[in-house]
Amino acid sequence: MNVYFDLLLLSVMISIVSSLVGTFLILRGGSLTAFALSHSILLGIVITFLFTRDLNSPFLPVGAALTGVIIVSLVEFLTKSRFIKQDAALGIIYLFVFSLGLIMIAKYAANTTLSAKAAITGNIALIPFDRFIIAGYDLGPKLLWITILVLLINIIYIGIFYKELKITAIDSEYAHILGFNPTFINLSFMFIVSITIVTTFSVAGVVIAVGLMVIPPATAFMLTKELRKMIALSIVIAIISGLLGFFIAWNLGSVEISSVITIVAGLIFMIVTIFTRSGKN
């Protein structure tokens, strides 16, 4: 077992899986929705844990992802009825469910590895010790394999619904007229974002998980006007941030690798902003 190599690979894979869905997330104007999702997921984990009583249960990620989708759909339903504005609704709901999640952790999950700190920053240090072992062969950290599985699911989803994701984002009314139900695409995409956050959650926590999703595509968006190039560029930026972030974190002796990755991604974003803006003037 090689902790250094495991963490390096995990840093890069988590960055890639986040930035791929992130591209469609920011193009659909869903950054705030993702925040609401990630905070709802925490609540979902605690609630599902109350039923399963096992933090390693396979139902935990599914329950968490579904909770996220249900809560965000409720918010969208409320805003569609013009009861309240969407940003206000999302802003209020994510703080509300997050607080509820934190209280429930303290009350019902006090003796587990689930803690308020882990929820906020993630806990990458523990991950290399949870191994995926088949017939005596050690195949690496479990989470690495889960991340690869989620990445495959995301690639297949985006591959199948590429055209539908595009048309509902560019012109949802026209999509509706042509018979492509935007609600179906919205819900299924939210579920994909949800399972991705559930995966990155244990490494990055609720806040950074969204940062990894949003920053590389937002940077790529400034550099190109073609969707395929934007996807490719955001993955490249994610890989660079993952690698650099890991090396810096490792050498600093810090275990908050995901935070350093986000800082690197943020710096790349700023540099690109300065160059593209000054190029235009």
């Binding site: 595009k166 984002a169 012109d171 009314e173 026209y174 968006f221 190109t224």
Partner: peptide, 12 residues
């Protein structure tokens, strides 16, 4: 549609 209903920033 009226032009205002479309996301013109979309990279397409």
């Amino acid at each position: 549609p009226q032009r205002s209903s479309i996301d013109f920033d979309f990279p397409t």
